[in-house]
Design a protein around this nucleic acid. Structure first.
Lengths: 224, 224
DNA sequence: ACCGATTCTAAAGTTTTTCTAAAGAATTGG
DNA sequence: CCAATTCTTTAGAAAAACTTTAGAATCGGT
């Protein structure tokens, strides 16, 4: 998933970025309030980890802005202050969870994942469709008891499609979501074609159904 | 696991630090109330050993502070006073266990480990899987009656994997949990690769099964 | 201070995944 | 119906991720 980390302390920021990146997410950063505003108004994120104390403003003030332009985005507030007022205030303004520094990256990760599941999938640990089970903890796809081996990119694609079930997702959206900034859109979507095809093939091979419909000129749609 | 020792008497502090460090834990110290407050608000710990009588304050007053920012941390109170009032007071405020000075380090160790077991391992003394027994008190792995000799790192890895059975754990998560802050993630994960390989080899050699699946690009997963 | 065990580093080897490129099929618009 | 565009499919190159080995450094106990 695509995450934004708003944090001014460089060490902690680095730790979070490398932790979440190596966990298979696309991560972006904002070092202060100004950068955060810019990012929020330009890109869509699945989750935003927001430090409250920033050099040029209070992170809490970002929450309404995020909520007006990114309804479904999970917001987790971070704060060094051990203040109940901040927590209550943040949650009232529309944050979804709260974590006080210090914390284990492991716990932050668990909470961000939980947010994403709550937001996108109504709190289901396992996503089921038509005999398939996506085990989000084990990061694998099962058909009955048999494991359908997916590569990392295929797994990410599948999750993204299932979350956006019955909705057309553009190739740009896929690129932004799964490749992030590193994707060179000017060139071509060939990479996406190839991965789509590989994922499709594996699903079709399993039970004969093609869950992914091509919407020519617009993108793809997962139906189930 | 990561521990904090709050104790003003240097001899006892040193003894505790060296005992627990050599047992494979990540240990930190605070010599007085002030240092303790600082540490508690900066880092996360699995367990805190807390002397009640400190030169600049009463250790008991730290308990609420710990509890508000570190929910899952085990707290063990130490006191020279053999006072029932202190004990009751401490436990009421959220401490998990109590030990009166003087004591044997072995007993302290046993109690701190018990705290961890209660917290992370849901109270299990022995973890069983497929003919193997992990004796968490003796910190060893048995296959039937035969002991499978593991190094400290291998044992820690195994515990971490077993606790997270069927869940993919990223290399960052492993690093954070087993190497702590000393791990230089920027460089490489080579150390992890090597230890993983050694642990795997020992398990495979014992009964031919590879319980650890590599999830390329994401981490490893213990399945049983 | 020495010995053995453990842990780490470095590098070569292996496997898997990802990407690129190109040819072929389907669809759309003129 | 033809040309242009968009997508599918294949195959192989390139990159990345992981495994394995060996030896150096470090640690712990005597």
């Amino acid at each position: 998933m695509k995450l934004l980390f708003v944090e001014d302390e460089p060490v902690l920021l680095d730790e979070m970025l490398s932790y979440f990146s190596s966990d298979g997410n696309i991560c972006e950063q904002a070092n202060d309030y100004g950068q955060a505003v810019e990012k929020i108004n330009t890109y869509a994120y699945d989750g935003i980890v927001l430090d409250i104390t920033l050099p040029d403003g209070n992170g809490i003030d970002l929450i309404p802005q995020i909520r007006t332009c990114q309804m479904g985005t999970g917001i987790l507030i971070l704060s060094a202050k051990n203040s109940l007022a901040d927590k209550v205030n943040g949650l009232n303004l529309g944050a979804d969870d709260y974590l006080t520094k210090p914390f284990y990256l492991e716990e932050l990760s668990a909470r961000v994942n939980a947010l994403y599941r709550r937001k996108a999938l109504q709190g289901e640990e396992n996503i089921l469709f038509d005999g398939f089970t996506i085990d989000t903890a084990g990061k694998c796809l099962m058909y009955g008891t048999e494991e359908i081996k997916l590569t990392k990119k295929e797994y990410q694609l599948l999750i993204y499609f299932v979350v956006n079930k019955n909705r057309v997702v553009s190739k740009s959206a896929i690129a932004e979501h799964i490749w992030g900034d590193s994707f060179d859109e000017a060139d071509n979507f060939d990479v996406i074609y190839v991965h789509m095809m590989n994922l499709r093939k594996k699903l079709i091979k399993t039970n004969g159904t093609d869950y992914i419909k091509t919407v020519r000129g617009l993108g793809y749609k997962f139906v189930s």
